[in-house]
Write a protein that binds this DNA or RNA. Structure first.
Length: 154
DNA sequence: GCCAACGTTGGC
DNA sequence: GCCAACGTTGGC
């Protein structure tokens, strides 16, 4: 089993939206970056756990926990001309983009802020603390996952 | 709103 | 296949 961090803008879709969805489950679509796509396609598996990370907002950081309940399938938005994620070069025979379904597990009482995470000397692998860190889907190694979880105030 | 750091595109 | 131009991301 693997651990992940999924980025999202809470003004658009955050941990609260996920919690209030039917079955607290949502299709994670719209990923249009090849590296992130490859993670979704090849490594994100049903049963994996992930942090929901809020970016581009007032309270930046890890806001909660979710679980992958359906692994890789073709992202339907790529075939929909009405969607802003429409990709005319993608075909049903050879879909370019991948979605997964995730289910809400927990909302943290306090967001574990990026500032705090950057202050943790043991966190060295996590993409968030690296330069650039623009991936919207990134792996979290088990040691760092446990450490981050232990810092969550609940 | 600024701007650095990336990713993508397209001419050659 | 190179690389300049352009677009996007995302913290600040």
């Amino acid at each position: 089993m693997n651990y992940w961090l999924f980025k999202t803008e809470p003004d658009v879709f955050g941990i609260d939206h996920l919690e209030s969805r039917p079955s607290q489950t949502e299709m994670w679509d719209g990923v249009r970056n090849y590296q992130a796509r490859n993670f979704l396609r090849d490594q994100v598996k049903t049963g994996d756990l992930l942090f929901i990370y809020h970016s581009s907002c007032k309270n930046i950081g890890i806001a909660g926990l979710a679980e992958v309940v359906q692994e890789a399938y073709p992202d339907p938005t790529q075939f929909n001309p009405e969607s802003k994620y429409y990709d005319p070069k993608s075909t049903t025979e050879n879909p370019r983009w991948i979605a997964v379904d995730i289910k809400f597990k927990q909302k943290f009482n306090e967001v574990l802020s990026l500032k705090e995470i950057k202050k943790m000397p043991q966190i060295t692998q996590l993409g968030l603390v690296k330069k650039g860190h623009r991936l919207s889907i990134m792996p979290v190694i088990a040691e760092e996952w446990q450490l981050l979880l232990s810092k969550v105030k609940n």
